[in-house]
Amino acid sequence: METSQGITLAALAIHFLVGLSRAMILFIVCSGLSFVLGVLRVPNVAHGSLYMIGAFSAFSIFTLLGGGAVAFWAALILAPFVVAIVSLIAERSLFKHLYQREHLMLLLFTFALMLILGDLVKIIWGAQYRSIMAPEFLRGSFPLFGASLPRYNVFLLIVGPLVAIGLWLFTNKTKIGKIARAAAVDMEMVGALGINVSWVFAFAFVLGCFLAGMGGALVAPTISITIGMDHDLIIEAFLIVVIGGLGNMWGAMVGSLIFGLTQSFGVLFLPQFAIVFPYTAVVIVLLIRPKGLLKSVW
């Protein structure tokens, strides 16, 4: 670990890029959370659990298929769908009956879901630490200014913007995406136009959870997969969504960048209190712009 005496340009650059790639994971997860918040107006506390399920499913698919490069890609692609199915079941069987109820009840429901999913993960996968390995060409690192940047982080730096562009195209260019965006602004009007609001909700919820699963699958090769990773993530995700502007996808991007970079530079300057930095950044943003940096759909 670097100390504050010897910060070189290389260390700065590496921490910048590592922070950026961390921000990409956060962005993917938070854009999902933001989407659910925008359309359903519910802070989905279970979002972190779905992210965790994404990581664990990636692990299972990876080991099931023998752990090679093919297994890795299969895990990356299939895990988000596993999460989407889980969320679809939860939504259609229980959640949809609550939309007419008070908002705190919806929050309470997502909390109950978080408790249940957390224990289900413990039952299915146990409390051990799990890990998966990226294929050969994503392992190791690139030399950069005399330091080294892990290849997987470069991969994340490519995937993040691709997901952002994909999401933008989806919400702006496809009919269903446009409906979802309209629903975020005025749900009653969407209903009045004869669109099945219940399914719009279901769709938004499942898409948001799909993104959580994708974030979980992408983060899996870089961390130890374990129960408890949901708790660490969800609060960060909420803060990011709030400082970015509720329901705003680009806001989630800005928030993630702030969070990822302050955390990464915190490690560089004051390792012991690294986690203090992002929270401080959030406090500063909220004091200056209480409703978030970009326009909120609320």
């Binding site: 986690i275 406090v283 909220l286 409703k291």
Partner: peptide, 28 residues
Amino acid sequence: FCIRLTKLYFGMLQISLGSLVWAIVFRW
């Protein structure tokens, strides 16, 4: 600090300030 905001924003600012306190206790 929080009272100038309302509802969810109030809660979120409180969570970030509270997490700040937690982070310091957790690491010091």
